[in-house]
Design a protein around this nucleic acid. Sequence first.
DNA 1: TCCTTGTTTAGATATCCGTCTAAGCAGGCG
DNA 2: CGCCTGCTTAGACGGATATCTAAACAAGGA
Lengths: 121, 121
Amino acid sequence: MSKPLELEDVTGAACCAPLSGPALGEAEAAELAKVFKALSDPVRLRLLNMIASVEGGEACVCDLTGAFDLTAPTISHHLKVLRQAGLIEGERRGTWVYYQVIPDKLTRLSGLFALPALTSA
Amino acid sequence: MSKPLELEDVTGAACCAPLSGPALGEAEAAELAKVFKALSDPVRLRLLNMIASVEGGEACVCDLTGAFDLTAPTISHHLKVLRQAGLIEGERRGTWVYYQVIPDKLTRLSGLFALPALTSA
DNA sequence: TCCTTGTTTAGATATCCGTCTAAGCAGGCG
DNA sequence: CGCCTGCTTAGACGGATATCTAAACAAGGA
């Protein structure tokens, strides 16, 4: 079957309540930690940036690979990590594979760091 | 006055432009990666959550320590990592040490994940 | 069928990280 | 003045995990 690049998203319910909100359970904290671990690498950060900023919302792996002094398998590995974190999604179209960010995920992460309006000093 | 817990903030200019914005340089990516590395541990995530959600904006280390099955030095270590990432700030007041988040930092992280109005058409 | 592109697996190496114990420093109190 | 508590620092150990190279596999197109 030509199912592209499916991969279990290790990121479940985490990343919804803001950090300044209710207490984070151990499980949720562990989930979130995985996402941040995926982001804790310069190459992956740049890959995500490239994918997110590409016009049309899609980036071809062939372009991404050229931007680094790394072998294709290594880039592929990093993309896989980002995929497992639920940050990006890949799709094969013909010969090439295209990646795009998962906006919902980014938006939720954004909300995670949101602070409530300062109630007092 | 009181000499709190100064520590070089390894986090410079990074974390301002959204991921979907202009290309991330290697240096910036490395900086950002450090911040996310600090966040890639469940204990630290929970510590940050506790500090951020405490009423009054300040959390006493003595309270934080009790919430985990870890020794005081270990907690202190994690707090140091968060401090180095520029996420929190500590201050000694009398016998105890109090920590608080650095709102500006969180806000910038929030902006990092912000997406522009969907440009794809 | 063969070639190109990209992913996956395997494995070896290296590195990093979290945790602990022990010791040091700061401040308050009897 | 000396002790006692609270937090941090220093150092080390064990374990886990990431990284790369190399080779095989999968999917399409000519």
